[in-house]
Design a protein around this nucleic acid. Structure first.
Lengths: 144, 144
DNA sequence: CTAGCTGCAAAAGATTTGCATGTCC
DNA sequence: GGACATGCAAATCTTTTGCAGCTAG
């Protein structure tokens, strides 16, 4: 698990150099935090989680940084039904479960879909870069 | 095509009665407009399109109405990467293509997925109500 | 050194809310 | 008649921007 994190961080640093992005403490911490967790935090949430480690970190830097990362494909802005945007470290081949009550987003894997070919009409539309299944429902905790 | 619209409107009126929602001109027009188009408009866009027909319609009524409809499952708030929320009449079994450049959302069908069973781990999570594939890429117009 | 980042504060944009009035059932 | 909806205006929440100082490369 720690290996995966280290690997993600190395890939991140490489990607930054390749894109000409500077490696600042803020960027490193924001990425590291996002790579560490799996709960798809919002900019606001990330900021709160990092403010202890980087006391001067401003919320707008978090927004700007996440925007920059997303532009360079390092993180994904996750689709949600809420008004606040959520983020995750870009990883191909994973899908989302969203509880329409508590709004929690959980990842799941579904190789069947990853391997499936999209219908012909879709290829006529343009160039597909990734596909993601979003399943909506109510999670166990909210059901009881 | 017109038949489909009429059928949707009838279903809508029934659903309203069933949920104890009042049938006001605003609600009817908002739903009708949304059922007529396929471009997943935002509340703002819907308001602009309806202001001719309902000159006193206020933007906040559009927001409130869409929120109410969404609560009752009559429309879906569509996942997007943008800050503005988009809406569509609730229809099962359809999927989305999103162009990461022009942000246009296009529907497509993929029966293969509609028929597929979700992996076991997902069923442990809770009760799934619907699943939707979102494919990201760049559309033809933006590619050229 | 200097282009690119950051923090601050203020602006802009999206959505929600309180309240008085109007209207569907 | 009464509960529910609407319109207006103001508030709130989220995200973006301008600018001056700071810093990684």
């Amino acid at each position: 698990m720690a290996d995966k994190l280290r690997q993600q961080l190395t890939a991140f640093e490489d990607a930054c150099r390749k894109s000409g992005l500077r490696l600042t403490p803020q960027r490193l911490e924001i990425f590291r935090e996002l790579a560490k967790v799996s709960d798809h935090p919002s900019a606001e949430t990330l900021h709160q989680r990092l403010i202890n480690r980087l006391p001067t970190l401003s919320l707008d830097t978090v927004y700007r940084t996440l925007g920059t990362f997303a532009e360079h494909g390092l993180v994904n802005k996750v689709d949600t039904i809420e008004s606040q945007a959520r983020f995750e470290v870009a990883q191909l081949l994973h899908h989302h479960l969203i509880c329409r009550k508590c709004k929690k987003i959980i990842d799941f894997h579904w190789q069947f879909i990853d391997d499936a070919l999209l219908p012909e009409e879709v290829h006529a539309w343009g160039r597909i870069e990734r596909k993601n299944v979003v399943a909506y429902g109510i999670c166990q905790q909210c059901l009881t």
